[in-house]
């Protein structure tokens, strides 16, 4: 009856029908078949620890770093940006929206914006010197690379001399945009070439497809 449905609401996995899938295709670079292939990926990721049709932070962590439990700065930021509704889980529509930014054909503007939000660790509207330092230190630790503090400061000095046009010690959105347009290779990690061929990476979507394209 009606009440059973409501009782089960939180345990019931969301089903995505043709309407929802084509809506997601309309608001992204993906075709309906590609959205379906992404749904295969989403199902895999969202059931790796808790099979509830939602990606929990530990599941994203497991997918990215093969371990559900190590602290990672980047993971925290990515999860935060994927989780549009800020309810602690990534739903399928949020997954599609975020990956859309990483599509090879997504507007550069969107990639610039996403990278800015990613690196603005404290969400102050600026990428601050301390944040850049924190990220570089995190990377050095992970890769077992050793850099003296002097050298690290020199790298950051040089970076800010180039990026921080108004010299106020922090990079604002406009400065970021100008900087990245001068160094487009900095946006490389904002593009996932696989997304262009997602239906070949996850061909099993054909077993569940709602539409033959």
């Amino acid at each position: 009856g009606c009440c059973d449905f409501h009782k089960n609401k939180h345990h019931k996995k969301l089903r995505y029908g043709f309407r929802e899938l084509s809506q997601l295709a309309r608001e992204s670079q993906f075709t309906v078949n590609e959205v379906e292939a992404l749904y295969e990926l989403f199902k895999k990721l969202s059931s790796s620890i808790i099979d509830d049709g939602l990606i929990h932070k530990e599941e994203l962590q497991l997918a990215l770093f093969k371990s559900p439990h190590s602290e990672n700065l980047f993971l925290d930021r990515v999860f935060y940006l994927f989780d549009e509704k800020k309810n602690g889980v990534i739903e399928f529509d949020e997954f599609v929206h975020a990956l859309n930014v990483f599509h090879p054909y997504a507007p550069t503007e969107d990639k610039i914006d996403f990278a800015f939000r990613l690196y603005d660790l404290r969400q102050t509207g600026f990428i601050e010197r301390e944040e850049v330092k924190q990220m570089v230190i995190a990377i050095l630790l992970e890769s077992d690379m050793n850099l003296s503090d002097d050298l690290l400061e020199a790298i950051i000095d040089k970076t800010f001399a180039d990026a921080d046009a108004d010299n106020d010690g922090k990079i604002n959105k406009e400065e970021w945009k100008a900087f990245v347009l001068r160094h487009p290779n900095l946006l490389k990690n904002m593009t996932l070439p696989y997304l262009k061929d997602i239906t070949t990476v996850f061909p099993s979507f054909v077993f569940n497809t709602e539409v033959e394209e």
Binding site: V132, I139, E142, L192
Partner: peptide, 25 residues
């Protein structure tokens, strides 16, 4: 030559700032 590199180059090149692993490749 790390000093010839800018900090964001280090960050964006790092394996941990990359989503490629999502695809299990």
């Amino acid at each position: 030559k790390p000093v010839s590199m800018n900090a964001f180059e280090l960050i964006s090149r790092s394996q941990s700032f990359n989503l490629e692993n999502l695809f299990g490749k």
